[in-house]
Computed example of a mutant assay.
Amino acid sequence: MRTEVMSALVGALRIPVQQSHEIGGISNQIFLALEGDDDLYLDALDYILHMTRGKRSGTLKEILESGGSAWTVNSQGVGLEKRVSAAAKNAMDSATASSDTFSKEIQEAWEQAFGRTPDPSDAWDHAIKAVEEVLIPIVLPKVPKPNLGGVAGELEASSTKWHLELASSVNNDSVDTLSRMLRLIWPNPDRHGGGLARRTPSQSEAESAVHLAIAIIEICRNGRLTKN
């Protein structure tokens, strides 16, 4: 390990070490601390991936996969994330394939939901923002200060005026289903106001919100939702 990497790692993860002039003295202390704490070891891997911008991330990914770890290297190669099903990962990769604003928002939502230091409320917020970036220009392009609740309300009030291009679509059933999906993620329970109960979402709720947002994005983008 390079001296600058060891110094940064020790400082970032608060690993207690004593000054040593012996060859491998500091690194041995670091590895001893990591071997005694699985979570600290994962935090170290995550930090080093970020610090080195993913150098040798492919090798680490192979090691984690062969060992059956619940963690893997993220798509950018700069951190760890929870392993998910291939279908979920493929959907995420498809949703972030472009450089659109909503792609950046859903990427941030994913990192906050599945990264090493998850923030369920922040993940939920970014999931909502990602869906808003897709649907507001389509459904409420001229409304000042629109939000996802307004989008859902418009689709609910005038579902017969909208068409969602799906192979299984029957009349306006698909639009009604879309509006119900939007209600599942709007609003973030941590952002309630007006006397409503406010709480921090659980980790599993936030993960579900992100998966649902990805599904909505895939369904509605590329001109599939249109007004009759």
Rank of each mutant, 00 (worst) to 15 (best):
E4M: 01
M6H: 05
G11M: 02
A12Y: 08
L13I: 08
P16G: 14
E22D: 14
G25Q: 14
G25H: 15
G25T: 13
N28D: 14
I30H: 07
L32G: 11
A33L: 06
G36E: 14
D38K: 15
I48Y: 04
H50T: 09
R53S: 15
G54D: 10
G54M: 10
G54V: 10
K55A: 01
G58R: 00
L60N: 07
K61R: 06
E65M: 10
G67K: 03
A70P: 09
A70G: 09
N74R: 03
S75M: 12
Q76V: 08
V78L: 15
L80S: 05
L80G: 04
L80I: 03
V84S: 14
A87G: 14
A87E: 13
K89D: 14
A95K: 04
T96V: 12
E108I: 12
A109T: 00
W110E: 09
E111K: 09
A113F: 00
F114I: 06
G115F: 10
A123Q: 08
H126S: 00
I128E: 06
P137F: 05
P146F: 08
N147Y: 01
N147I: 10
N147T: 09
N147A: 11
G150Y: 01
V151N: 03
A152L: 03
T160I: 07
K161L: 13
L164I: 06
L166W: 03
S168N: 07
V170W: 02
N171E: 13
L178H: 04
S179Q: 09
R180V: 04
M181S: 02
L184P: 00
L196W: 15
L196Q: 11
T200S: 03
T200C: 02
P201I: 02
P201T: 00
S204H: 13
I216Y: 03
E218M: 10
C220V: 04
N222S: 15
T226Y: 08
N228T: 01
